[in-house]
């Protein structure tokens, strides 16, 4: 049983015009097995929240705390956070030229498990993860995210979710850029990972359609750098009908 606790989180970024505060005090608690959807308009700070939890160096924490089972996440380096059990499926996964998917996955699994997985079992694990996500076998020998289509990038992120078995996963707009078939395949991957490992999921999305495949327990509306409303799945229905208009602007 794990708990990620975010309290009063304030984050700024440095721009040409000086420091700009993006997150203005975020409170959120995610436990193993729970699925939290964060929904909000573009530019409201959803990715900033995701990156800040993962430790991206561009974001400066100016206030608040983040803990995982009581341990201070903000004190940890990026790799330590991952080894503590946090995972971020990125909205825009990064290309790493010359590094093959299979080399990357094995290096990551070795780092996270503390020892190199036994080769024969590992090959089987990767193969079945790829098959489940309907990825071609040739995928493993391609370079990480290089020349991947939008859908391939997202499948690759979710494949990592399945193979790397985090405690808490943050999925940043994993649904964007996917057609209906790909959305279903990717959602099934998330559900498998949840079921297999009891992951707590923070599902960041702009649209409600992914919530038809991945049932949220809680829905949080995000606007202007903070959570402005919270509820159950019914809140998503309301957003579907009314949009974000009432939360932004005046």
């Amino acid at each position: 049983m794990s708990t990620l606790e975010i309290r009063g989180l304030k984050v700024s970024v440095t721009t040409e015009g000086g420091d700009v505060e993006i997150l203005k005090g975020v409170d959120l608690t995610i436990k193993s097995g729970e699925t939290h959807a964060i929904m909000g308009p573009n530019g409201s700070g959803k990715s900033t929240l995701a990156y800040s939890i993962a430790g991206h160096p561009k974001y400066t924490i100016t206030g608040g705390t983040v803990t995982l089972d009581g341990a201070d996440v903000l004190e940890m380096t990026v790799d330590e956070r991952a080894r503590a059990g946090l995972f971020l499926a990125m909205q825009y996964p990064v290309e790493v030229p010359g590094v093959s998917v299979s080399n990357f996955l094995r290096t990551a699994a070795t780092a996270l498990r503390g020892e190199a997985p036994k080769l024969r079992e590992w090959v089987g694990e990767v193969k079945s993860a790829m098959e489940a996500l309907k990825m071609d076998a040739s995928f493993a020998s391609r370079n990480v995210n290089e020349g991947f289509s939008g859908g391939e990038k997202k499948r690759h992120e979710i494949m990592q979710l399945e193979l790397l078995r985090p405690k808490i996963a943050i999925l940043d707009e994993t649904d964007s850029g996917l057609d209906v078939d790909a959305l279903r395949v990717v959602s099934e991957g998330v559900n498998r990972a949840k079921e297999a490992n009891g992951i707590g999921v923070l599902l960041i999305t702009h649209y409600t359609r992914i919530l038809r495949y991945i049932q949220p327990d809680f829905v949080h509306v995000f606007a202007n750098g903070k959570i402005v409303e919270e509820g159950g799945p019914e809140l998503a229905e309301k957003l579907e009908a009314n949009g974000y208009a009432e939360y932004v602007g005046a």
Binding site: H56, D79, M90, E95, V96, A108, L164
Partner: peptide
């Protein structure tokens, strides 16, 4: 690139 790899636990 460094961030992406480190976010997967790689030192």
């Amino acid at each position: 690139q460094l961030f992406y790899l480190m976010s997967r636990g790689i030192n």
